[in-house]
Amino acid sequence: MRMAERESEDTETTLPRRQLGRLLREARSATGMNLERAAALVQWSRPTLSRLERGETEKIRVTDILALCEAYGVDRNTSAVARGLAEQVPAKSWWHAYGDLIPAWANLYVGLESTATTLTIFQSLIIHGLFQTADYTRALDRIYFPDETVDELERRVRVRIQRQHILTRTHQAACVSVVLHENVLRTVVGDNKLMSAQCRHVADLSTRENIDIRVLPFRAGFPLGAALPPFTIMDFDHVAPGKKVLDPSQVYCEGYAGSAYLEKRTDIRTFRHAFRKLQESSLDPRSSRDLLREIARRYESER
């Protein structure tokens, strides 16, 4: 199905609603309970619980969600995440701040990313996590998480590397289109040796058939007349389990204090238009690869 066709109307469900359903479905499955048994525990019908797990319930009461969490014996953190999702159920433009639920919220994005079949990415300040080397990730996380132990930081590195498998897996690797502002390549993370290896890594990935990487040079200025935040458009071209419709596209905008998830058709179209303008102003894939390797050589010569 073409993207334009999929954006003809806003979806009836919302991202918080679908993620809440997934969380509860996984919690129930972990107990070994079937739908009938779980529904009986909270005096619901099987169809009612089934609709909730598919993200198709319009009105959700927090007390009902907490009752399900208690029935499944989930921990306090998971219950808090479920509550937060339940409170956000109607939202199609959804902003959440980082706080005590950082690990759980971060898993939301990772879960979406891992099931996306197409990713459209703009990065203006930093190498996207899917393209970071382990050393690049390590250098950033030492600063961002100053109080974590070496073991905790290494776990974060392993998670980042695991995420990258969607680019190289042999079966249905994700198709990725990326625009990197030249500033991303010129800003030193760690040292010149690290940056040289990072630029070469991105250049090597750009040779894969499923990956299109283009560099937006400094001389391109502001193609849209305004500065844009880093963003990722996620498309899901497969049918979700138990559903006859495709999961709707998402725009994810990450910030220092929180992240925005957008799925209104106007938002999706706005960001697709922005990406097309950025891509038109960027170097072509071959020239971008040449620039990446040229910058890598320059870093090496300055060591």
Rank of each mutant, 00 (worst) to 15 (best):
E12M: 08
L15I: 11
G21P: 00
A30K: 03
T31A: 01
A40T: 06
L41V: 12
S50I: 03
L52D: 07
L52H: 04
R54S: 10
G55C: 05
G55A: 02
R61T: 05
R61S: 11
V62C: 08
L66A: 09
L68W: 06
V74R: 02
S79D: 01
L85W: 10
E87Q: 15
P90H: 07
K92C: 05
Y98C: 03
G99N: 12
L108E: 13
F131I: 01
A134F: 08
D135P: 07
D141M: 15
R142N: 11
F145P: 00
V150I: 14
D151G: 08
R155Q: 14
V157K: 14
V159G: 07
L167S: 10
T168P: 00
T168E: 07
T170S: 15
A174W: 01
S177A: 12
L180K: 03
N183I: 08
L185N: 01
S196G: 15
H201F: 08
D212C: 10
G221P: 15
A226G: 10
A227I: 13
T232M: 12
F236D: 11
K243M: 13
K243V: 09
S249G: 04
E254L: 11
S259G: 12
R265N: 14
R265D: 11
R269L: 08
R272T: 06
R272S: 11
A274M: 06
F275V: 02
L278V: 10
L278Q: 06
L278K: 12
E280V: 10
L283I: 04
P285N: 07
P285L: 06
R286K: 12
S288L: 04
S288N: 01
R289Y: 02
R293G: 02
E294I: 05
I295R: 11
E300V: 13
R303N: 15
